[in-house]
Amino acid sequence: MSENIMLKKSDFESDQAVRWCPGCGDYAILAQTQKIFPEITTEKEKVVFISGIGCSSRFPYYMNTYGFHTIHGRAPTIASGLKITNPDLSVWLVTGDGDGFSIGGNHMIHLLRRNINLNVMLFNNRIYGLTKGQYSPTSEQGKITYSTPMGSLDYPFNPSKLALGAEASFVAKTIDRELIHLQNMIKRASEHQGTSFIEIYQNCNIFNDGAFSELTDKTTKSDRVLSVEHGKPMIFGADSNKGIMLDGTTPRVVEIGKEFSLNDILIHDEGDRFIGDMLSNFTSSDTFPEPIGVLYCKERPTYDDLMVAQMGQAKHQSEKSLSDLLNAGDTWEVE
């Protein structure tokens, strides 16, 4: 069957020249997406990439699938309408911290709570890139930018935590420089039934260079990054000698080998909302490492499945025709 022929990375590359700044983290995300997609689908005509406005939102032009570059912040609305109209499609939403969590924040939370079966890739670079360097809703407080010469006053959002608060059924985090991890997260998102939310830390080397350098520099990353996997202990550090332990309901970073052993270390459970919430709180903390991986994953009925079921039920319950409706109610004849 021709449908089952494995596609190649090049099948997902469009003929359009990629126009991000040299050195931008978006290149890596695009390449990993194109690389992993042959493993995700053999029917690229069913794949649709939808984006809003911003640097990240140029993404659909470079994928040789269906693509829709919409308007600022509103990609979730188009994606939702498309997916409920044709649940057979594989819908991917590409957004940024400004697009998805500033101008489009409202749509994002409602998408997540509805749990429409599509995938969100949030490129979080903690800056506005396309409008040339203003602070974003994920920028740290006090950030000096063109619009905040004395430092920004806004307190930032933590997108993964916000996603969990909006009842997301799948929340993962990864980093543009972690190529294989990034591919794995995209694959995992594709397998999840429901809205899959991946927050990708992405370096903007023009306006916010080094925002995540602690998490990517060889010298610091092993002590600063906690890569979580379902069923495995939460350990990190250059010598894998640090871990997360629960002291009652309070997480603590402990050293393995002295007072505590590997047996004391918390085992990651993707289906445990408490753990997901806890991990999402580690972000931007001085005490805890930055978690990457699937923080939370628990399936619940998707909006599109529920809609299909309701449509079926309605068909079953009513056999009315258009003519029945036109002729309903009290009618009378004029001779």
């Binding site: 919409t70 509103r74 609305t77 994606a79 498309l82 409920i84 044709n86 409602h110």
Partner: peptide, 14 residues
Amino acid sequence: IAGIGAALGASYGG
């Protein structure tokens, strides 16, 4: 906004 966005997404989908 989401109302018209979803409607346009539906039209895009046929």
